[in-house]
Write a protein that binds this DNA or RNA. Structure first.
Lengths: 316, 316
DNA sequence: TCAATTAGGACAAAATCCGTCCTAGTTATC
DNA sequence: GATAACTAGGACGGATTTTGTCCTAATTGA
């Protein structure tokens, strides 16, 4: 009758029966060190059991009084929306562990009335979403720490391996995260380059939270963030293309990136950067409208090659 | 989420939320070996927690009813997953009303401790998902009724306007719903055509739940559903293309539709239907691998035209 | 009989747990 | 203000536990 599991559960029982106990007291009762009590409390928190702590002279630990998920009444629409959201997250593989999603679903279903529960089940069982899936990899792991940094407005030190380059240490003030066609990006102020930059999370070898905090520009939100993200994408070649179409069509074809398009006399100017002209050419080739490549010449060549390849296939 | 202590209690929670689970299932969910699950079960029994086990072919573990853990909250990971899900739903415009999503979020935040609440906020504020958005329109409205029909296994009577054709009344047994590149589809058994068919929800003019019920084929799930959905897409022209690549690359480029690709000597055979060769040609032109068009000839022409247009642009 | 499940022994490698020693915050009281 | 009593949590190393793998046995339904 020993082992940490037993003692953690005992701690839970102690907190349940006595309303409130100090760390020293708990340590004595469990026969372990105070330090270990703190570790047990952490374990309970990790399990999702809400323990409140009071600091200071007369501090101590207690279970959140009478807390429970009230038989939450979701409406039909809300259940649908919620279930669709979870389904989407699962399909996109947004969270690093599918386990977390299943467990959220189970917990929510537990507090739903039977009627809604069956509806939630119906959504999960009969709806299929075809979405671009995230690449599996380490990127998801880093979401948590980065989110912490953003939340607390603290700088991070990262090791970043840019395209075909050796990893380099940088200090970055993380402003926001972006998910785009299967990949996660972080955008923020790069202390090395002294400007707003965007980093691919899967090229991020190491993250470390620094003590140093920063102030996020107040007007840094969605639109701005967004445009800058694409401008600031690591890439070697500056690209300029004029799209001969209207904003609406362009936005639809490109996935709502219309904010970075500058209207011109003969269309919309798209300025960006790229690493690979060939990839970009492939992407351009599926646009349902005309466009003109202003720069670079390499892109024209890449597009020409691609088109010639397509011609061969068509004539085969 | 690490350490045996936490995992043993997680097992407890799993048993509490799902009524009954097999050892294999538990092992998978906890990310440990089956043997270890047995050890955990033993640990729980030693703790005085009554776990009933059923041996034999369809055996499994259950928690004796009445055992209650203190109210659970979401863990950090779960909050992240949940928030990402809601964000994804919002971005995809999956639900017809954004109002439902906001209200779900508000309700959930209300029962979260401050720590988790701020994390949920951070997700909502600082993360941006770039996803293909659903076309706004009536399609979302019909999701609810159709889901009801699927849940209750009742046939529906629909008015469907196929591509460039007059609306026609059909009776359909709805099996499942599919969301793909911005559009909703319903697949099910069409009483008119006497086969599995897929319908675009935005071409659905009217839905009426019928009293008549049906039995969904038992093995109708994901994969099958899926393949059939694409085969059965309304379209006039049969298309056959051989993709010269491996399954993995194909799946990535096409968005996990690999299940409908048949391996052949020189690649993967893609059979489908289309209404518009030109659209298909545009889509084909961005594939990062070679392919051969077997049929129809119109598609070859369309691809040729498209390639010539691209050449002009490249030489400009 | 077969397939799928639970039950549990043995063992070596791997991971953990835990006390000890720190320093840093927080808060009520003197 | 200073102080005392508390929580918060990093680092470390040795003792301990845990865990995967490989076994064999029992149970049960088809």
């Amino acid at each position: 009758m020993s082992g940490p599991t037993v003692r953690v559960l005992s701690l839970l029982e102690l907190l349940q029966s006595h309303g409130r106990l100090s760390g020293t007291e708990l340590a004595a009762r469990l026969g372990v060190d105070k330090r270990t009590v703190r570790r047990y409390i952490q374990a309970l928190e990790q399990l999702g059991i809400p323990v409140t702590t009071e600091q200071g002279c007369d501090g101590g630990y207690m279970l959140v009084a009478g807390f429970k998920l009230p038989p939450m009444m979701f409406t039909n629409d809300e259940t649908l929306a919620l279930s669709l959201g979870l389904l989407a997250a699962k399909n996109l593989q947004l969270a690093d562990t599918q386990a977390a999603l299943s467990s959220v679903q189970a917990k929510l279903e537990r507090v739903m009335p039977a009627k809604l529960k069956s509806r939630a089940r119906a959504v999960a069982d009969s709806i299929k979403l075809m979405l671009p899936t995230a690449e599996t990899g380490a990127a998801g792991q880093q979401l948590g720490p980065l989110l912490d940094a953003i939340e607390q407005q603290r700088s991070v030190s990262i090791f970043y391996a840019a395209y075909q380059q050796a990893p380099e240490a940088r200090q970055v003030d993380p402003y926001g995260l972006l998910f785009r066609s299967g990949r996660w990006y972080m955008s923020g102020y790069c202390h090395l380059r002294k400007e707003l930059r965007t980093f691919r999370l899967d090229r991020l070898l190491h993250i470390e939270l620094l003590q140093q905090s920063f102030n996020r520009p107040t007007q840094f939100n969605s639109a701005e963030h967004f445009t800058q993200s694409l401008y600031g994408m690591p890439g070697n070649l500056d690209v300029q293309i004029v799209l001969h179409t209207d904003k609406h069509t362009a936005a639809q074809a490109m996935g709502e990136t219309a904010s970075m398009l500058k209207p011109q006399a003969d269309g919309l100017l798209l300025s960006t950067r790229t690493d690979s002209c060939y990839c970009l050419a492939q992407w351009l080739s599926q646009l349902p409208f005309d466009f003109s490549i202003i720069a670079p010449t390499e892109l024209k060549l890449a597009l020409q090659q691609h088109a010639e390849r397509l011609l061969q296939i068509a004539r085969h």
